[in-house]
Simulated assay, not measured.
Amino acid sequence: MEIVILPNTAEVGRLAADQIESLLAGKAHAVLGLATGSSPLPIYRELEQRYQSGTVSFARARAFTLDEYVGLPDGHPEQYREVIRKEFTDKVDFDPANVHGPAGNAAGTHYACQAYEKAVQAAGGVDLQILGIGTDGHIGFNEPGSSLASRTRIKTLTEQTRRDNARFFDSLDEVPRHVVTQGLGTILEASHILLAATGANKAQAVRHLVEGPVSALCPASALQLHPHVTVLLDDAAASQLSLADYYRHSFRHKPDWQKL
């Protein structure tokens, strides 16, 4: 796991976009894993600017989203397929047919979850998975207590997560209690995982992710088991890390030939 501490969110977006642009330059049909929430937004804004300037194209790329609310009607502005479309894929040249998300309203949801797993596998797996992290350490919607080997399934949201997400709805009562999410085992099969976290409210979760034990109490800590994880942080999100100075030193002296 490589920890990169940057001065601001714009730099987080720039460095992540560098990696995605490099991936697509070598593999135009690469499979991206797309996350919603506030943490990936600087990445999407930077990629949009690069698309507009002609330095990157998503015309042949494919994408799978992490999760979806259960029970929101099709077209609801907070459905994650709608959020991803509005925040990113509609602003670049992604083919809508190549952007896939788990079904939150499917009859036979268990079988729909299995079908989603098979679709990811049929695409050859995810080349680069973008992640954020919740204040309770969740990634995707794998809440504390999730199995480290879990697959795509229905989960019940914690009240903390519902409160965190209430800002996107008119009231807390409108936030769904259930979601479909890729499991931790599913996420860990991506070739490269890039997690972005910004702001002091993420500092405790980041500390547990990076320097705590691998535990179901902090689902993101499962990323310690993956061979290629890059954690991009601003100073505020890194403020509780005991080894922050070492992480900064390591990145400053990283060999030029070594990529993220």
Rank of each mutant, 00 (worst) to 15 (best):
L128R: 06
T181I: 08
I20H: 00
D235R: 15
I5C: 02
V99F: 02
P176S: 05
K202S: 04
T36N: 02
A220G: 10
A222W: 01
F251P: 07
S215A: 13
V120W: 02
L15W: 08
V92I: 03
H208V: 10
G185K: 02
A190H: 05
G212K: 03
S150F: 00
P219R: 08
L225M: 11
K118D: 14
E117Y: 03
Q19W: 11
A197T: 07
S147K: 10
I139S: 13
Y247F: 15
L195P: 02
F64G: 00
E78P: 08
D136T: 15
I3D: 07
D170A: 14
A200W: 02
Q182C: 10
H100S: 13
S147M: 03
A106P: 01
N8M: 04
G124V: 00
A149S: 12
F169V: 09
Q114I: 14
G137S: 11
N165E: 13
P144T: 04
R50S: 09
A200G: 07
R85D: 10
G101M: 13
E189D: 12
K27S: 08
A203Q: 10
E46I: 03
S221G: 08
I43E: 00
A149F: 05
A97Y: 00
T230C: 13
Q182S: 04
A216C: 13
H249S: 14
R162L: 12
D235A: 12
P176V: 06
Y69I: 05
L6K: 09
I20P: 00
E211G: 06
H100L: 14
T230P: 07
H29I: 01
A10T: 11
D93K: 01
P77L: 00
D93Y: 03
P102M: 06
S191D: 15
Y116F: 15
A205W: 09
E82G: 04
A115K: 11
D67V: 01
A17T: 05
F141P: 11
D136C: 15
E68Q: 10
D93P: 06
A222D: 11
L217N: 10
A28K: 13
N98T: 09
S53F: 10
T198K: 03
